[in-house]
Structure formats: structure tokens, C-alpha cells
Nucleic acid binder design. Sequence first.
DNA 1: TTTACTGCAAACCATTTGCAAGCAT
DNA 2: ATGCTTGCAAATGGTTTGCAGTAAA
Lengths: 137, 137
Amino acid sequence: MKEILKEKGYKATPARLAILKIFAKSKAPLTAENVHKELKRNKKNKDINEATVYRTLSLLEEGKILTKVDFRKESAFFELNQEHHHHITCLKCDTVEDFQSTAIEKVLRGIARNSSKFINIKDHSLELFGLCKNCVA
Amino acid sequence: MKEILKEKGYKATPARLAILKIFAKSKAPLTAENVHKELKRNKKNKDINEATVYRTLSLLEEGKILTKVDFRKESAFFELNQEHHHHITCLKCDTVEDFQSTAIEKVLRGIARNSSKFINIKDHSLELFGLCKNCVA
DNA sequence: TTTACTGCAAACCATTTGCAAGCAT
DNA sequence: ATGCTTGCAAATGGTTTGCAGTAAA
């Protein structure tokens, strides 16, 4: 964990380690508020400031340790930077399911190739929204 | 134009008509600020308030006359609700190109079908980001 | 007339920032 | 010792809202 930070030239502070640990434990993307609340549940980390959380999230995103996820919410979500994948999220309960699709990546490459105005496609966002089995019931 | 508003039970006020006209003329999605600035360029609409613009955008979105577009920007973009499509946007100059892909829609239906947690996929967002020919040069 | 709409200014909420103190290296 | 980090509080920027006046139906 410390290694990851030092590799990027970031100091391994208690706040950063605690925040990374929270992401390591979480199966779903988290907001700054999620992280801050989780920190407060632990006596050791209770005093880590909201501003520090935001600064840490930006730093880790910049260092490609975290990735920003674009749900249609007011606040930004982050997750550990892992293999390229997408999410399906429940409109009612916010359950998240990950998925990958080589078929989609392939189609997207074709679209990039056929574009009249663009040469260089760097990235894309793809998120599905629906109702999970529990919430449809 | 008035018809569209009255159909939904909305009053056809000058502000709403002016805002709709701006969207009808624009080829790219617009922010509230874009719209407000465009209104100010016309003597007749110069005094339409920012708050009215926001209220109108929400109303038109709710009435499915406008659709919100999720670029990775601080502010929200809207466009006239048209045939389902996606965008490629330039990371440098914000040029927008639209595209459609039955192949993608098909793959997404398959993914929805294979999901373990979800039964009902309502919607998805898909945006590509890259560099347009001008900005690569 | 009646109810929806608008302008204005204040409020909001997520996020950012300046500064002085504190800590990792 | 040095400069990156942090806490705190204030500022920011996009967006929303209460209220009293105005206009569409």
C-alpha cells in the first residue's frame, strides 16, 4: 500500500493509507462523503478533514490509482483503478454490477475509425441504468 | 413550437419559446450559461433571468423535450430530445460529433440479458472523448 | 380571474483554496 | 531541515428556492 504511493512520489501519510484501505475494501464506487463517513467510524481516523479527503481523491485520481466514475449523481464517485470495465447501477437502490465486453470495445474502435471529425479517441464512458431484481419485485 | 409546450400542459411564455428556439438552432448540446448568454444577445430576451433558464431547462427535461447530456464538465449540457444517439467530443476544443450504432445497442441488450443482478435496464450513457482532426494537427 | 411563471436575492451543496501549523522524508 | 500535507474556515461555482409581482389561460 505504501509502495503504491511512494512509487508515484507521494508521501505515505496516515490519511492516504486509510483512504486507500477503504477503497480496497469496497466493492462499489464511493463518493468523498462516503469515504469521509467511513473514516469517522474509526477512532484513529476520526479527525481526517473533509478537505483532505477531496485533496486525496484528486491526487490519487491524478496518479491513476483511482478512477472517477460517472453515475448520474450530484457528487463524483471513485473506485480503485482496475481492469477496464463498466457498471450497471440500480436507479432505486444504487446496487452496482460490473461488466466487461470485448464486443463493445471492438464496436467502439470501429466507430472511432469511421468518424469524420476525429482521429484520436482516448477514452469513453459507458454506464447502464436500470432496476435490480430486488427493486423490480 | 407553442404546440410542443401546450401539449405537455406548459404555458407558452416568451422565455420558453426563446429558449426552445435557441436549442432548435444549435447543433451541439448547450449549458444553462450558453443559453443565458445567447438570450442576452437578443434585445427582446435580454432580461430573461438565469434562474428562469435553469427552471426552464428542468421543466423541458422533465417533459422529455430536452435531454441531459453527460460530458465530463462541471455544468450540465442539454439538447433537443431526438433519435437515440451518442457523442464524440474533443477534449481540447469541445467539438461534438453525433453517432448512432445499432451494433452497440444490440450488444448492450445482450449484456442486460446476461446480468445476474438486473432484470430491467432502462437506459444507458455512452460518450466518447478524443482529439478532433484540428486539435491533433 | 386564477394559477402558473418570472425576477431578484439569498440559500445550497459539492468541491476548492489560502494560510499557518504539522509531519514524512 | 525542507517542503509536502493537513485542518480550518472562507470562498467558489453551478444550481435551487422563497417570495412578491406579472402574465398566460
